[in-house]
């Protein structure tokens, strides 16, 4: 019997394949297509204290093997989420993780506190790395002291596990990972989108309304895998890492896992291939069967087994 379930920060997930924030709404639309309860978890679209309109179009733009987005965290606010959306998801038989966004420390905290009694939400994923909003977001994710203070403040007040989704647009992801761990984070989510840009040569103007946006898709896979690898090397025994970035099939998911991810999130791939997360679950099962590996846990960070980094030989 294959064991795909995994216990992370005190919660048992039926499998390690989740869907990433902003690529799956709140799971409602996908229910028309498949049974969402088959997923390990659904990470919600970013939730802020007050409703947010988001950025004007154009909000998306295709790039080689990827895309840029600048949605700007359009969402109904935490109250709107609890009133209008939560009743529709509360009977789905899998875990929900709320992606939480704020412009100030207090806003982050208030959103988390408002969700404390919502049973279906089992953990928070702090969004300190959204490149598409003017206030908050990056501000928290790009300053070690500010980040450490934010994580510490929330951790002290909430009961549910606290994950932090880190920005790849910083100097050293290890330093930011350490700041989160020192402040008590229960897990790290690596990585958010990379800041990018596209120019439309016909109009000779930036293609996105906000000029720059977040790059996602297979194009960022090697960067995400490298960052998971680095953080696992240093802090793998301290907190679980959730890998996200460029996962679009079983191979890319396994790369994250073997680099050190205890769970993975399928993101941009949901857009063009909504069945992708289910294919990845099946693919991991097949891989384990072929390798006669009974427990998924044994795959986590397995690529670190042979410490043969040529730089150090």
């Amino acid at each position: 019997m294959l064991e795909l379930s995994i216990n992370l920060f005190g919660i048992t997930f039926k499998n390690p394949v989740w869907v990433a924030s902003g690529t799956f709404g709140y799971g409602i639309e996908a229910m028309e297509l498949y049974d969402v309860s088959k997923l390990g978890a659904v990470v919600t679209k970013g939730i802020s204290l007050k409703p947010r309109e988001g950025n004007p179009p154009e909000r998306i733009s295709e790039t080689p093997c990827g895309m840029l987005n600048s949605i700007g965290l359009q969402n109904p606010g935490v109250e709107g989420f609890l009133k209008k959306i939560y009743p529709k998801i509360k009977d789905i038989d899998t875990h929900f993780i709320a992606n939480v966004f704020g412009e100030t420390e207090e806003e982050y905290l208030e959103v988390c506190l408002a969700l404390e009694s919502a049973e279906k939400v089992v953990a928070y994923e702090l969004n300190v790395s959204c490149p598409n909003v003017k206030k908050g977001g990056l501000l928290f994710g790009h300053d070690l002291l500010v980040l450490e203070r934010l994580v510490g403040k929330i951790k002290a007040k909430v009961k549910k596990p606290l994950l932090v989704k880190l920005s790849p647009n910083t100097g050293s992801i290890k330093e930011f990972a350490k700041a989160c761990i020192d402040a008590g984070a229960d897990g790290l989510v690596l990585i958010n989108t990379l800041l990018g840009m596209k120019i439309d040569v016909r109009s000779q103007k930036p293609d996105l309304s906000t000029f720059t946006g977040g790059l996602s898709g297979p194009a960022i896979l090697p960067i995400a895998v490298r960052m998971v690898w680095e953080v696992f090397s240093e802090f793998g025994s301290a907190v679980p890492i959730v890998g996200v970035g460029g996962i679009h099939d079983t191979d890319s998911a396994l790369q994250h896992i073997l680099a050190g991810a205890s769970a993975v999130q399928v993101g941009t791939a949901n857009f063009s291939d909504p069945m992708c997360p289910l294919k990845v679950i099946e693919g991991i099962k097949n891989y384990m069967e072929e390798r006669k590996e009974r427990s998924f846990k044994n795959l986590i960070g397995k690529a670190h087994g042979l410490k043969l980094n040529p730089h150090f030989l």
Binding site: T23, P57, M67, N69, Q74, F271
Partner: peptide
């Protein structure tokens, strides 16, 4: 018509 990444309601790219 609008630019769309998903077509099924989740990317929020096509809004008007």
């Amino acid at each position: 018509e609008s630019r769309m990444a998903c077509g099924w309601g989740v990317c929020l790219g096509c809004v008007v």
